[in-house]
C-alpha cells in the first residue's frame, strides 16, 4: 500500500506550512512543512539539537512562531484567541517526556484534572472515567499513589492516561522510551499502536529510538538542524540515500567539516580581522 496514494483520500489533522522559529538571531526551525492524516502514527525523528522538541512545543501551541501557520483539526493555532485555543485543547492530548505529573496530586487526581476543568461531570462519573483510562494503561492499582512513588515506566503510563482521558482526536507523545528498559518501552509501543487501532487517534511521537520508531510508525519525518530532510513511510526512509539519514539509521558518527576561520574564532572568541 503506497502511503502517498492513501493520503489523498484521508483528512489532514495537522497541517504545518512554512513554519519559521527563531530564538534571538538563531533560526531553530526553517521552512517546515508537514501534513499528518487522520488515524496515522507519525514519528518525528532527529538527533539531539535537531529541533524536534522545539517543533513539538510549537505544535502544541505553547509558543507563537515568527512565521508560517500550524493547523490542528482545521484551526490555525497561531491565530486563535485564547478562548478558542482553550476549546481546541480538549481534543488534544500530550504525554510529556518526564511525565509532568502534578506532584501535589495523586495519580487519580492527575488523570481527573482535565475532566474537572473541561466538563461538568459529577465526581462519581469522573472517578469511573479516570479508572477506565487507568485500566487501559494497566495502572488501576496505582490510583491513590503519589507521582513520587511511581517507577519511570509507571510515570509515563500515568501521563498517557491523563493525556487520553478526554478521548482526544490527536495525541502527542514526547520520547516514550527515553529512560526506560527495553521491555517496558516495548510495552509502551504496543500501547500506542493499540490506541490508534481501538480509539482511532492520530498520534505524533517524537523520539530518537530507532527500534521503537520503525515498530510504531506509519510515516517518519526526519528533522535535521531545523529543517525537514524527508517525510515518508518506513520503507522509504530505510531506502533513502541521504547521508544524514543513513548516519542516524546506522549509528555512524557525523563527518565534521572544518572551517579554519570558524575554528580560530571559537578559540579566540573574536571575529577574524577582515584584512586577514
Amino acid at each position: 500500500m503506497s502511503a502517498a496514494a492513501d493520503n489523498a483520500e484521508r483528512t489532514p489533522v495537522i497541517e504545518v506550512e512554512d513554519l519559521h522559529v527563531r530564538y534571538g538571531s538563531r533560526d531553530i526551525l526553517r521552512d517546515v512543512n508537514l501534513t499528518v492524516y487522520q488515524g496515522e502514527i507519525l514519528v518525528i525523528m532527529g538527533g539531539s539539537g535537531s529541533g524536534k522538541s522545539t517543533f513539538l512545543r510549537y505544535l502544541l501551541g505553547l509558543h507563537r512562531p515568527v512565521g508560517g501557520s500550524i493547523k490542528l483539526l482545521g484551526r490555525d493555532i497561531t491565530r486563535l484567541k485564547s478562548q478558542e485555543l482553550y476549546e481546541l485543547r480538549r481534543k488534544i492530548g500530550m504525554s510529556f517526556q518526564g511525565g509532568a505529573l502534578f506532584n501535589s496530586m495523586s495519580v487519580g487526581e492527575n488523570v481527573r484534572l482535565p475532566l474537572r476543568e473541561h466538563t461538568r461531570l459529577d465526581e462519581n462519573t469522573m472517578r469511573i472515567m479516570s479508572r477506565l483510562k487507568l485500566e487501559v494503561v494497566d495502572l488501576a492499582h496505582a490510583e491513590d499513589l503519589m507521582p513520587a512513588q511511581l517507577s519511570g515506566g509507571m510515570v509515563k503510563r500515568a501521563a498517557l492516561a491523563r493525556a487520553i482521558v478526554m478521548d482526544p482526536r490527536l495525541l502527542f507523545f514526547d520520547e516514550p522510551s527515553a529512560g526506560l528498559d527495553p521491555v517496558v518501552s516495548a510495552e509502551l509501543d504496543e500501547l500506542i499502536l493499540r490506541l490508534r487501532d481501538t480509539m482511532h487517534m492520530t498520534i505524533v511521537v517524537v523520539t530518537h529510538e530507532l527500534d521503537s520508531a520503525f515498530k510504531i510508525a506509519d510515516r517518519i519525518t526526519f528533522l535535521d538542524r531545523g529543517r525537514i530532510l524527508m517525510t515518508g513511510s518506513v520503507a522509504e526512509v530505510r531506502a533513502s540515500d541521504d547521508p544524514r539519514i543513513q548516519n542516524l539509521l546506522n549509528r555512524r558518527p557525523e563527518a565534521r567539516v572544518r572551517d579554519p576561520d570558524e575554528y580560530l574564532r571559537r578559540l579566540t572568541g573574536r571575529e577574524p580581522r577582515p584584512s586577514a
Binding site: R57, L60, L62, L85, Y86, R89, R90, I92, M94, F96, Q97, G98, A100, L101, F102, N103, L113, P114, E117, H118, R162
Partner: peptide
Amino acid sequence: GTMQIGQEIDALRVIGV
C-alpha cells in the same frame, strides 16, 4: 519553579488550564 522544571506548567497549559 519546581513545576516549571518538571514541565508541569507546560502540562497545565496543554490541558487548557
